[in-house]
Nucleic acid binder design. Sequence first.
DNA 1: CTCCTGACTCAGC
DNA 2: GGCTGAGCCAGGA
Length: 127
Amino acid sequence: MKKTNLKKPTEKPRSLDKDYSFFENVYAVVRQIPRGRVTSYGAIANYLGTRLSARMVGWAMNAAHSAKPKVPAHRVVNRNGMLSGKAHFATPTMMEEQLAKEKIVVKDDTISGFEKLFWDPAKELAL
DNA sequence: CTCCTGACTCAGC
DNA sequence: GGCTGAGCCAGGA
C-alpha cells in the first residue's frame, strides 16, 4: 500500500462478523496470500477495517504459532517490508529461509522489491 | 476488575 | 530525516 492510497480511519466497514475472533480473520487472509507474495500488518488491518489496529494483526500472528492449519506468518511483514517478526519464529533465520523458498530476496532483514511482491488483500480479495 | 504490554502505524517535533 | 508520543484492541497477570 502506498502513501497515496491512504484511507481515512473513519472508513470502517463492519462487514466482519464478531462471531469470529479477530485472529480468525487474520488467519484467513494470511493463508490466502499467494506463494511468493507478501503483505503487511497494516494491509491486513486495513482489510479488516481497523487500519489503526495493525498491532492486533501482529498479536494474532503471535497466536498463529498454535494455529492450524499453519499460518504462513513469514509472508507478513511491517509496512517497510522488514522482517519485524523474524525474532518470533522458531529460529531468527527461519523466516528468511521460508521467504527464500518462495523466491523472495531478503536483504538486511528487508524484503527486496517489497512493493512488487506486495499483496494487498483489500485489493486482491476485493472485499 | 484494573493495569500492562505488544510481530504496527501515523502525526508531530 | 530520525526520534517520540499517541491510538488502536485483545489477552495475560
